[in-house]
């Protein structure tokens, strides 16, 4: 079985983002998706600190620290891009104007509950940022994550044990082993990497999984 690396996962997510989509890529792993969006497709990247039409990082030495993304990294603005204040920015999410949001996660439940803001460990200082707004705001919320932690725990679960970010908000999960659609009926396997079987996935995850209609090898 060939697990996808992080760049291959980003490439896979990018394939599902159509021309004309308004998209927010969360901090961390999801930002890699931008590297694989085809240049011939107009896709509008939103950053919740107040820009639409976000471009790639500037050349070294060209950084403008008043032109940053939500991860506080220097970025550029594409021709036609624009700036706006925070109330407008979050209205774009909450108001259902954003098409797709891609987020990282600690855990996702088979019904689409998301946990990605707080480990809940005693003594940990909580920070939420825009995670809860992003999770419930976009028309579709995708999660991108490795299926298992380094310790071997499955991150797709029956019910989240970490503090929740949003309820029933994730529609699709892209992992290094398979892609899942989530919903009230639970998790459906959309694709698996070559050499992996549904039985393997059921065994390793311990989840009741069914196949979505069009299964294909990644």
């Amino acid at each position: 079985m060939n697990r996808l690396n992080r760049d291959q996962m980003a490439e896979r997510v990018a394939r599902d983002i159509p021309e004309g989509a308004y998209v927010n890529l969360g901090i961390g792993l999801p930002t890699k998706v931008a590297n694989y969006l085809p240049a011939d497709r107009d896709i509008f990247l939103q950053s919740e600190n107040g820009l639409l039409g976000m471009g790639p990082a500037p050349a070294k030495g060209e950084e403008d620290w008043e032109l940053i993304n939500a991860g506080k990294q220097a970025v550029t603005l594409l021709t036609g891009g624009c700036f706006f204040h925070h109330a407008d920015s979050f209205a774009m999410m909450r108001g259902g104007h954003l098409d797709i949001c891609v987020l990282g996660a600690f855990q996702v439940s088979i019904h689409g509950d998301l946990a990605n803001w707080h480990t809940g460990e005693p003594g940990a200082i909580p920070a939420v940022g825009g995670a809860m707004d992003l999770a419930i705001g976009a028309k579709q919320t995708f999660v991108m994550m490795e299926l298992f932690t380094k310790q071997g725990a499955c991150k797709l679960v029956e019910a989240c044990t970490y503090p929740l970010t949003g309820l029933g908000c994730v529609s699709r999960v892209y992992t290094d082993m398979a892609v899942f659609d989530l919903g009230v009926d639970g998790a459906k396997v959309v694709e698996m990497v070559e050499g992996l079987t549904l039985e393997d996935l059921r065994q390793s995850t311990g989840l009741t999984l069914t196949l979505a209609n069009e299964i294909e090898a990644a």
Binding site: E48, H85, H86, A87, S89, F90, V128, G137
Partner: peptide
């Protein structure tokens, strides 16, 4: 300051803060 109990924190999701 937080660990020393010298500052009170009200944590608000960013969009709720703006709203």
């Amino acid at each position: 300051a937080f660990r020393a109990g010298k500052i009170e924190l009200e944590l608000v999701p960013q969009g709720n803060l703006a709203a």
